[in-house]
Design a binder for these strands. Structure first.
Length: 219
DNA sequence: CATGGGATTGACT
DNA sequence: GTCAATCCCATGC
């Protein structure tokens, strides 16, 4: 856990990642988002775990078995929209999940942000997660949206210019120790190693990816 | 129109 | 380890 303080101000002022960053193959973007920072109001979190989803594989909300084409509904509309937007949906009736839409408009693909490390506004995050130990503040896709106050209303908003945005890692920031593994909580396309994490982070959600049982920072 | 299933979490045995 | 909470919406009668 990092200190609550000024670094967040610098990151908040930093330029958001441009649309071109997201207008690439979704797996590339999922890896490159590790280390970048989600900023929302006074809170900010360094991304330490992501998953990629694409309309051509069964775990994606927009997937349908061939020969049917991709599934475009009110819920999945943002997935088909321009890259660089947020796709926020409700999971299990309870949790909001934050995704970054990728690839050209018309192609449904997005990166799910599964975990961050607090870099600003930790005190506010604790207020939003009363009774939770720090290790449970942001280590999980439903947890981080609570801590950062990301809601369904943010669905479709522009991550490159809005109040909710993603900025590049600060120069000299701690390097990412990338590990990959199968995605979590899905029933189809479980063989794809499209989950990515920073093995040096204490805030990756469980179960940890392969190769992460050692070398973790303690907390 | 009724039913069922989640890209999860937290409480409990 | 088990399991319920609770919403969106796809599917099928």
């Amino acid at each position: 856990m990092q200190d609550d303080g000024d670094p967040g101000e610098d990151r908040a002022a930093a330029a958001p990642l441009p649309v071109a960053f997201y207008d690439r193959p979704v797996v590339e973007v999922a890896r490159d988002l590790l280390g970048c920072v989600v900023v929302h109001g006074a809170t900010a979190g360094r991304i330490v775990e992501t998953e990629a989803y694409h309309e051509t594989e069964g775990a994606c909300h927009a997937w349908r078995p061939p020969p049917a084409g991709p599934r475009r509904t009110a819920r999945t509309a943002a997935l088909f929209g321009p890259p660089g937007r947020a796709y926020v949906y409700r999971s299990y009736g309870i949790h909001a999940m934050l995704n970054a839409v990728c690839e050209p408009e018309g192609t449904a693909a997005a990166v799910l942000v599964r975990a961050v490390e607090p870099v600003a506004g930790v005190a506010l995050m604790r207020e939003r997660r009363p009774g939770r130990p720090d290790r449970e503040l942001v280590a999980g896709p439903g947890r981080l949206t609570l801590a950062l106050d990301v809601r369904l209303a943010d669905d479709g908003t522009d991550l490159t210019s809005g109040d909710l945005r993603i900025v590049a890692a600060a120069p000299g920031a701690r390097p990412v120790v990338e590990v990959a593994g199968p995605r979590i909580g899905i029933t189809r396309a479980t063989e794809l190693p499209w989950r990515f994490a920073d093995a040096s982070s204490p805030d990756v959600s469980r179960p940890w990816p392969p190769g992460m049982t050692r070398g973790r920072r303690g907390r």
